[in-house]
Design a protein around this nucleic acid. Sequence first.
DNA 1: CCCCAGGCACATT
DNA 2: AATGTGCATGGG
Length: 269
Amino acid sequence: MVGEEMIRMRQTGDLLEVESPRPVAEFKITRYLRFDDDLGSILKELSKDSRLREVMAEVGGIRIVRQDPWECLVSYIVSRNCSIPMIRRTLDNLCRKFGKKIVWEESIDYGFPAPEMISQAEPSELVKCSLRYGRRQALELRKMAEFVSEGTMDFAALKRMPYEEAKSALMSFDNGVGNKVADCVLLFSLEKLEAFPVDVWVARAVAQLYQKHLDSESVDRIKREHRLTPKDYKCVSDFGRRRFGRYAGYAQEYLYHWIRLQRGACHLE
DNA sequence: CCCCAGGCACATT
DNA sequence: AATGTGCATGGG
């Protein structure tokens, strides 16, 4: 689903074939897949780092998608402390219960629920979608939905701000938006390709490859697989942005997939 | 029964 | 400002 468009896509060589039940404007697809990024020059710039260059060679092709900000925000609020299959299931439940149903031949799917649907939802109905933190999280989602639909949270304005400013603005809404969620929303939906979200996996990758450049106590905690302290987060994320610059977000995605390949975690997806 | 999964908010110090 | 702790689903 891209917005409320159901799409089937297949890549054969350099050709991308797209099918849909009704005509879909091409820009919706190319915008979602970030065809406006000059991937060649991005990869060339990131390749200046020899360790990252090897990582990129092992991982292969990656694209970052340009998500709808509201969808992205909800997705990462819901994701906290969950496995990827669990995240998918929760989001799917939310769409099935609150989204617009789309039928195409034998395929049935649902659009992502509008903020108005979530702000008016009964907390108990949200909890039924198997939210990891139950009622508390249901209230977080409702609050955010309210901020978005009344315009208190203005995604267009956030896009115009520089990274640091947009990040503190996002985090000031609380209700489930911390460092990680804010950086993910900035990277995947608000045009901040320099954002460098840090989860346990990215922290492990950076601690392993760039140990010398980090605070040694942070490296110790990360290698012992402790939960990340705010200090560790800042240490790794600031390093990522300094090291990889305006396309740090792409570097982050390569590091994330690389370390999961190393640890055999990709089968969990 | 145990463990842990793409963290965050809040209480203590 | 730093550190500790509760949260409370589901799959292995």
